[in-house]
């Protein structure tokens, strides 16, 4: 049975698309059949992060409108065989996405034998964001350790608890996970940044991953290779751990402690 996971946040620029791309790759690396869908109609970006922007022929809205089959629109990843991308449409018509249309596409993917459907939500709480979360079984709420991001994600938690199919049907609701990005253990240690436990306490969510601030995220998007595929990177390891946790493994959090400093470094500042 397919599991639908929405990657959402409310606030823009916190790393939803980076996270969607990496989680999708990570799940596919575990042998799962994964489809990752860009719900940001009008502002297509997942294709760039996945590195398949030149292979987009048909998009999500084309499938909904019946201009092509789902199979024609799914872009097969060149690195991972079981991974497929469905690009957002560039249309300016925000009404192009309909609840019925989205339901049909998700049902067809499930019938096609996909294990996971990752819905990359647009920022905000408008229609695209609503439809990205509406059919979700689980939600990964991406948060930066920063006040506006935390507040917006709490708004999103309110919507997940009321404006989703699972909430309306009353069958346990959407399972929510917290994924912190751009985390800096050094700044947490010096009291300049809220810690994992601070944010966990405010939002009351279980933590599925903590991704450290890393220059590798920008290089990855520059290259169109999801950061999780960079073996050398701490951010990749953190995303790898998050994927394992999504699959039910119990993995301790890494990269949340400040690296140990020598005696002199401690006495004389940085």
């Amino acid at each position: 049975m397919a599991e639908t996971i929405v990657v959402t946040s409310g606030k823009g620029g916190v790393g939803k698309t980076t996270t969607s791309a990496s989680l999708a790759c990570g799940l596919a690396r575990h042998g799962k059949r994964v489809a990752v869908i860009d719900f940001d109609i009008g502002l297509r970006n997942l294709d760039l992060i996945m590195g398949c922007e030149r292979r987009v022929v048909y998009d999500f809205v084309n499938v909904i409108n019946g201009d092509c089959t789902l199979k024609q629109a799914l872009i097969k990843d060149k690195r991972l065989e079981s991974l497929h991308v469905l690009a957002a449409s560039q249309t300016r018509d925000k009404e192009a996405l309909t609840e019925e249309g989205v339901r049909r596409v998700l049902e067809e993917l499930a019938a096609d034998g996909f294990d996971f459907i990752i819905c990359d939500s647009p920022a905000g709480i408008e229609k695209g964001a609503h439809l990205a979360m509406y059919f979700a079984d689980r939600a990964v709420v991406v948060v930066n350790p920063e006040v506006s991001s935390v507040r917006d994600s709490d708004r999103i938690l309110g919507l997940l608890a009321s404006k989703t199919q699972r909430a309306e049907q009353g069958n346990g609701g959407v399972k929510e996970h917290l994924l912190l990005t751009r985390y800096s253990p050094q700044r947490v240690a010096s009291g300049e940044m809220m810690s994992v436990s601070d944010i966990k306490e405010i939002l009351g969510l279980d933590v599925v991953g903590v991704v450290p601030e890393s220059p590798d995220v920008l290089s990855a998007s520059n290259a169109g290779v999801p950061v999780i595929l960079n073996e050398e990177s701490d951010a990749a390891r953190a995303y790898g751990d998050a994927v394992a946790r999504l699959l039910g493994e119990s993995v301790p959090l890494r990269f949340i402690e400040e690296p140990k400093k020598g005696f002199f470094a401690r006495m004389f500042g940085r």
């Binding site: 920063e146 006040v147 935390v150 507040r151 709490d154 708004r155 309110g158 947490v188 010096s190 009291g191 300049e192 940044m193 809220m194 810690s195 601070d198 306490e201 405010i202 939002l203």
Partner: peptide
């Protein structure tokens, strides 16, 4: 208090209010 503590306190209040 550190700025992180200030942030946490502010968020605790506003989130409770909005909830």
């Amino acid at each position: 208090p550190t700025s992180a503590n200030v942030a946490k306190e502010r968020l605790r209040i506003i989130v409770a209010q909005e909830r």
